[in-house]
Amino acid sequence: MNIKNKTVVIILLCIAVSLIIIALLFPFNKKLSNLDFSILDKNDNHQYELNEKLSFKINDSTLLSDKKAVWYFGNGDSIVSKENVDYTYKKAGKYLVTLRINNKFDFSKQINIVNGRTLTAKDSIPKIFCAAFGYVGEEIVFTGYSPSSNNWYWEFGETGTIDSYEKQAIYVFTSPGIYTIKLETEKTKYPITKEIEIFQLYEPFKEPEVIDSAGIVLNDIKKRLQIIANLGARDTRAYKAQVNYLKNKYICSDLSDVVVVVNEEKYNDFLSYCQGLHYLDGNATIIQEVKLDTIKCFRQINITQKTNKTK
């Protein structure tokens, strides 16, 4: 064998020995060759969205049991963990997510964060949000939800016609009963329906065309304030109905502009007084007397009341 061939053989032997040594000393690489991670979105629409919690899951966490691992999210944020992690992006854009092992080995994937999700067929089906019940004379709010829709057609069951074309509608029922609410949009074939029950809050009485008796007005206001005092703290619907009744019938200005004088020594605006009467004092209060500065559109009301000590 000539010198040239000996040299080639020696070089090949050195390379082979080096590879064996590397394989023996660094089995780490062979283990990590199977490492991978996946990115899962919370709403499962296969789109990574702004402010959506994303889950970064390692396919085999046992490969990292004796190693250091750091997650880098491409925006300067990082999490030290050899387990699965959750992360939410606060800004849209493309990012390179990297799982770095022992500060040497990187496993990376690019992720695209978008501002919002793509609308689906389900987004064309509207939903109705409203209270399950209400009272005659109360302003009831109805809200429609459908990301794909722009036109709204509400029927509330009293008139037999379309009552509103707004996404959020307000309606006042004039009679008690169970009503079927109907909502259509430009996307629906048939209307979406929901039932609401309307109660009579108080026994109706016929009013004269012209109220010429101050006593009728004062007794009516006194009656409404006593109802507010007697209502449970959680009965906000009945409370709002009474306040709206007083406002619509006797007050021509903002409720906060009406002065209330209690027992000739305490003061409130009308709205704060009603709130305190309902939520704070409750049925421990007895309304004894009501006086107005003027019967129509009063701006000041003097109230005499006492605490019922037996409550």
Results as ranks from 00 to 15, higher is better:
Leu246Met: 13
Ala16Glu: 02
Lys223Thr: 14
Tyr202Gly: 00
Glu139Ala: 12
Glu155Val: 02
Lys266Trp: 06
Thr285Tyr: 00
Ser124Gln: 11
Asn51Met: 09
Ile22Pro: 00
Ile11Lys: 08
Ala131Thr: 13
Ile125His: 05
Thr193His: 00
Val97Asn: 10
Gly232Cys: 07
Ile140Pro: 03
Ile178Ser: 14
Ile216Val: 14
Asp41Leu: 07
Ser33Tyr: 06
Thr143Ala: 09
Ile21Arg: 04
Leu255Thr: 09
Gln300Tyr: 03
Ser38Met: 09
Lys122Asp: 11
Tyr87Val: 05
Asn308Gly: 05
Ile196Arg: 02
Trp152Arg: 03
Tyr190Glu: 14
Val290Lys: 01
Thr304Trp: 10
Ile79Asn: 04
Ile178Phe: 05
Lys67Pro: 00
Ala69Phe: 08
Lys31Met: 04
Asn75Ser: 04
Pro208Met: 06
Thr88Glu: 08
Ala16Gln: 05
Ser164Gln: 09
Phe28Leu: 08
Gly93Thr: 11
Gly76Asn: 04
Val258Glu: 00
Ser38Leu: 10
Tyr279Trp: 06
Phe133Gly: 03
Cys297Met: 06
Cys297Leu: 08
Lys249His: 06
Gly74Met: 08
Leu292Ser: 06
Met1Ser: 13
Glu195Pro: 01
Leu54Lys: 06
Glu203Cys: 02
Tyr273Ser: 05
Ser213Leu: 09
Ile303Trp: 01
Tyr273Phe: 15
Lys249Gly: 00
Ala238Leu: 10
Asp235Phe: 03
Glu203Tyr: 08
Gly276Glu: 12
Tyr273Cys: 05
Thr62Pro: 05
Lys90Glu: 11
Leu119His: 04
Glu289Gln: 13
Val114Tyr: 03
Gly74Phe: 04
His278Lys: 06
Val9Phe: 09
Met1Thr: 13
Met1Pro: 07
Glu195Thr: 15
Gly157Glu: 11
Ile295Val: 13
Glu195Asn: 15
Ile221Ala: 01
Phe105Asp: 09
Tyr239His: 13
Asp293Ile: 03
Lys68Pro: 00
Pro204Val: 10
Phe105His: 08
Glu197His: 14
Phe26Leu: 09
Ser146Tyr: 01
Lys68Ile: 08
Ile211Val: 14
His278Gln: 02
Gly93Asp: 04
Thr188Ser: 12
Val172Ile: 15
Asp220Asn: 15
Ile228Trp: 00
Ala131Pro: 00
Leu19Ser: 07
Val258Arg: 00
Arg100Met: 09
Asp220Pro: 04
Ser65Gln: 14
Lys53Gly: 02
Lys222Cys: 06
Pro147Thr: 04
Glu265Gln: 13
Thr120Arg: 11
Leu271Phe: 10
Asp254Leu: 10
Lys42Trp: 02
Lys240Glu: 12
Lys182Ala: 04
Thr236Arg: 13
Glu184Gly: 06
Ile228His: 01
Thr62Tyr: 10
Gln300Asn: 10
Glu49Ser: 08
Ala121Arg: 12
Ile111Arg: 03
Ala233Asn: 13
Ser65Val: 14
Lys31Ala: 08
Phe37Val: 07
Ile287Gly: 01
Cys14Ala: 13
